[in-house]
Structure formats: structure tokens, C-alpha cells
């Protein structure tokens, strides 16, 4: 096992070298962005090779930072190349008008029955599918307000943990709800990338 593991580390490092060599040789900006995604995958491989619970704890923030970085870089690229609008009308898929309500209801109900992490993931997919199929105009002021209150709630939950540790369940639920609110705000920002307006 040990020899295999060492070989795995070696292959991972070799792949990192190959990927960065390719980035160095690349002239085109969009190709570079695609290769950045490759570099992110290889960084995650190095973290995954830690192979304990620590790896899971490190991969999750790594993924979140990676996706936000990719979104920021893509926005910068679009502004730099002045590609602000699609040149043709966007794809219209009929299923996205008729199906969302019943599909997401089924997914959320099944997720609640399953329970646990997989149930939560399923219910979350149902909710995301529903909101992705809705329109994509957004009032940014509301998102900012909700985000601010969520942040304050989160800090408040930590004070509960420190000052009144016997009410830990209340603290956990407050912190969880606040994080949910914040993540929801971020996801609705993803929705406005399809060209929504600030109402």
C-alpha cells in the first residue's frame, strides 16, 4: 500500500508540473481559463491524497473558493473582451416552464423521507432546480440586507455557544439558518449571471 501511495503522490506532482507547463506555453486567454480549471482539479487531488477527515474539511472550502474565483475571472474576461450580451436569443426549454413545480416537490418530499446528508442534498437539488427555472431578475438591496442579517445572526449564535452553552441546540439552529440564508443569497447572484436586471 505504501509504495502505491508514494507512486500516487509522484503522479500527482508530475501532473501538476505538466498542467503548469501547459499554462505557461498557452497564449490564448480563454484556453488559460480552461487550464486554470485543470490546475484546480490537481490541487484538489493533492488535498484528497491527505486521505483523512482533514481532507474532506479542506476540500469543501477549496471547492467554494475555486468556483467563486472562476466566476470572478470569467466576469473579468467578459468585460475585457466586451462580450456583454449573447448575440442570439437564449435557449428556451419548454420543460423549464412546465415541470419545475411538480419535479421539485417530488425531489424535496423524497429528500425529507430519505433524511441524512443524501436526503438534504436531494431536497436542495429540488429547491435549486425550482429557483433556476424561475425568472432571473433580482433586487440586490434585498440580498444585501438578508446577507447582513444572516452574518449578525451567525455571530449571535457564536455568542450563545460561549455565554449560554446549555442552549447549544438553539445556537446550532440559529447558525445553520443564517448560513442557509447566506448561501441562498450567493446562489441567487449566480442566477443574475444569466443577464438579470437590478429591479
Amino acid at each position: 500500500m505504501d509504495a502505491v501511495y508514494i507512486a500516487g503522490l509522484g503522479i500527482a506532482f508530475l501532473s501538476v508540473i505538466v498542467a503548469f507547463y501547459a499554462i505557461l506555453r498557452e497564449q490564448d486567454d480563454l484556453h488559460r481559463i480552461l487550464l486554470t480549471d485543470l490546475a484546480e482539479i490537481l490541487a484538489l487531488v493533492l488535498i484528497a491524497l491527505v486521505a483523512t477527515d482533514l481532507a474532506e474539511a479542506l476540500i469543501l472550502p477549496g471547492l467554494v473558493v475555486g468556483i467563486s474565483e472562476l466566476m470572478a475571472i470569467s466576469e473579468v474576461f467578459l468585460v475585457k473582451e466586451s462580450l456583454s450580451r449573447p448575440r442570439y436569443s437564449p435557449l428556451s426549454i419548454e420543460v423549464m416552464d412546465s415541470a419545475p413545480a411538480i419535479m421539485s416537490l417530488a425531489l424535496v418530499l423524497y429528500g425529507i423521507v430519505l433524511s441524512g446528508f443524501s436526503g438534504g442534498a436531494l431536497a436542495g437539488v429540488g429547491a435549486i432546480f425550482y429557483f433556476m427555472c424561475r425568472g432571473h431578475d433580482e433586487r440586490f438591496a434585498v440580498i444585501e440586507t438578508a446577507s447582513g442579517y444572516a452574518w449578525a445572526l451567525w455571530i449571535f449564535a457564536f455568542f450563545i455557544f460561549m455565554v449560554l452553552p446549555e442552549y447549544w441546540l438553539f445556537g446550532v439552529m440559529t447558525a445553520g439558518g443564517a448560513i442557509l440564508l447566506k448561501v441562498t443569497g450567493k446562489m441567487s447572484l449566480v442566477g443574475t449571471m444569466r443577464g438579470g436586471h437590478n429591479e
Binding site: L63, S74, P86, M193
Partner: peptide, 24 residues
């Protein structure tokens, strides 16, 4: 946990990249 999250994030990142390709 890492596996499931990676699958979800790959979906979003493909969406972001396809969006650039579509406009370019």
C-alpha cells in the same frame, strides 16, 4: 461529502465556462 460537493461544483463551473464560450 467531498465527492458529492465536487460533482455539484463541477456542474456550476461547466455552466460558467459554457457561458463564456457561448458569448465568445
Amino acid at each position: 461529502l467531498a465527492l458529492l460537493t465536487f460533482i455539484a461544483v463541477t456542474g456550476i463551473s461547466t455552466f460558467v465556462l459554457v457561458r463564456i464560450l457561448e458569448r465568445r
